[in-house]
Amino acid sequence: MSEKEPLFSSKNMKLLTNPLNENNPITVQVLGICSALAVTVKVQPAFVMALSVTAVMAFSNVIISLLRNTIPTRIRIIVQLVIIASLVILVDQLLKAYVYDISKQLSVFVGLIITNCIIMGRLEAFALGNKPWPSLLDGIGNGAGYGIILVIIAVIRELFGSGTIAGFQIIPQSFYDFGYVNNGLMILPPMALVVVGVIIWVQRAKNKDLQES
């Protein structure tokens, strides 16, 4: 038995930080785009969505990792689906009970977390072959990597589309008096795609490792 690894060894920290940048689920792996387009009109729902996905991802990673030696290989996808689906239903019920207005805005997209490819991808690629603690870090890291992009897109879209951030007026009234108008295009889904594209562009321009030769 090898020496026990410290909880926050550099290898474990990498699990947490890698998805934020070099291995970001949205901008590098291009997974989970669907919800990134749909729930990023306002910051608040985007934030709740990010939290929900992170929670589902962290818990499902841990549960699968705990069960990894018992899961029959032939039905492992079904087991993963059942666990993700139950967690998503739990999250949905909690949102409906405690933050009803936001749950109404997120509507069907909470249910669609089940089909978010990032979650199943992480279960297959990581949790099935790793211990619970690294799996938890991996889940949180990927959830955060997804969430940070969601919130960035939402900030940009809400600022230029509605002139607010998280509901607070940012662009002063005097701008509007001078003839400034909110960009209605920002509120529509196509602009989210353009914003994602710009973020990918900026990230690749800065990070040489990501550039394809």
Partner: peptide
């Protein structure tokens, strides 16, 4: 496999109905 699936479904059903 059958036993695993059945137990899993029962446990999940219990948790969800409770919630």
């Amino acid at each position: 496999i059958f036993a695993y699936a059945s137990i899993m479904v029962i446990v999940v059903a219990a948790i969800l109905s409770f919630a």
